Amino acid sequence: MYWVFNFIVGLTIVTGQQDCKNAVFNDCKFPAVYTAIHADDIDTCAAICDVYAVSGTCSMYTFEAEELIGENCKIYDMQTTIPDFQAACNEVGVPVNDECVFYDDECTVTNLCPTCISCGTGTCGGYMQMDCEFQGEIMERHPGVTFDTCQLLCRIEKAAYINYYRESNDCHCMATDKRVCKKQVVQYGTDINVCNPENKVSCANEEWTEDPSSGLCYHISSEVRSWSDAHAACLSMSDSYYNSDLASIHSATEMEFIKNLLPSVNKHFWAGLNDIQKEGSYIWTDGSSVTYTDWHYGEPNNDNGGKEEDCIEMPYGYDFEWNDNVCTISEYFVCKKTEIDYKTK
């Protein structure tokens, strides 16, 4: 998909610190268009690309969603990957905040630049949410100047933002700096329904139960495994939409929902909390913060006949309140799915 805006758009390159950018790049070097056709929607454009792909002449396509009249579906015969395509994008938009302007794809946080611009990208099977809309009035246009001159002129004019076209050396001094990331480029063979965050797919099925209040899903195992094997089993259940891991629990409400899923029989269930790396320093396997605990009275005690108890279980005999236990014991387990955020991936 390829949305066109009234103002210059920007792309963050997937190198360096992906979540911290102070330069927004976008000058993508699109190849020559093989053919351009009108399409009513992106699905039709994708189908057109499929037809041309049979003869090897569609490797990538763009769809201009706001251009509903005219040739808004462009077919490209370009054998490349989305990361390679991104690497060729070199147009930059940067904020005008004294020294907080750098022409690169790294971010240096200083007292003059306390935060960095982040414009989400995601590469899912060739689908790339890549560009940002810059909204606001253009204060001044300076054609044919260097980037350094553009930076200087926009500072003198007290612009809020610079838009600089590197190939044409055109400089736009912008009055505002609002950025909205909405542009996509799609590689042939990509399932946009998987990659488009607007097309959500429920995590619930015959093996997963969704909590409607949070949109999170939980799987209760029917077989026993050691804690590490249970962790691996949960990770293997990730898919194109959701990451799966041993369950992390962050509130009494979430704990109550999980308890209602557990069978009323004498079974123990692994969760993701553990202090394997450092005794007494508990972490969740999914990397989330430990903001809630539900220990049984006297736990954790790391007491099992001299064996280390580094992994957390929820035993029926404790009304599923938490207990530390030896990680090599085989138990049932609880997995949890969280939605993949392609906007920030």
Score class of each variant (00 low, 15 high):
residue 4 V to L: 11
residue 5 F to I: 04
residue 12 T to W: 08
residue 29 K to P: 08
residue 34 Y to T: 03
residue 35 T to D: 05
residue 43 D to C: 02
residue 47 A to C: 06
residue 47 A to N: 14
residue 49 C to D: 10
residue 54 V to S: 06
residue 63 F to E: 00
residue 68 L to V: 08
residue 71 E to W: 06
residue 72 N to H: 05
residue 81 T to E: 02
residue 86 Q to V: 03
residue 88 A to K: 03
residue 89 C to R: 05
residue 98 D to H: 11
residue 102 F to L: 12
residue 104 D to S: 14
residue 107 C to G: 09
residue 115 T to G: 12
residue 123 T to Q: 04
residue 127 Y to G: 10
residue 130 M to S: 06
residue 130 M to V: 09
residue 158 K to Y: 03
residue 161 Y to P: 01
residue 162 I to L: 07
residue 164 Y to H: 06
residue 168 S to K: 11
residue 170 D to Q: 04
residue 171 C to S: 07
residue 171 C to H: 06
residue 186 V to N: 00
residue 193 N to V: 02
residue 201 V to I: 14
residue 208 W to T: 01
residue 209 T to A: 05
residue 213 S to Y: 00
residue 216 L to K: 15
residue 225 R to C: 01
residue 237 M to I: 01
residue 239 D to N: 15
residue 247 A to W: 12
residue 256 E to P: 06
residue 257 F to M: 08
residue 260 N to F: 04
residue 264 S to P: 11
residue 264 S to Q: 13
residue 280 G to A: 04
residue 281 S to H: 12
residue 282 Y to E: 05
residue 284 W to A: 05
residue 289 S to W: 00
residue 291 T to N: 12
residue 296 H to A: 15
residue 303 D to I: 00
residue 304 N to Y: 15
residue 306 G to Y: 13
residue 306 G to D: 11
residue 310 D to E: 10
residue 318 Y to T: 13
residue 318 Y to F: 13
residue 323 N to K: 14
residue 323 N to G: 04
residue 326 V to W: 15
residue 328 T to H: 07
residue 328 T to A: 07
residue 331 E to G: 02
residue 333 F to D: 07
residue 335 C to M: 12
residue 339 E to K: 15
residue 343 K to L: 14
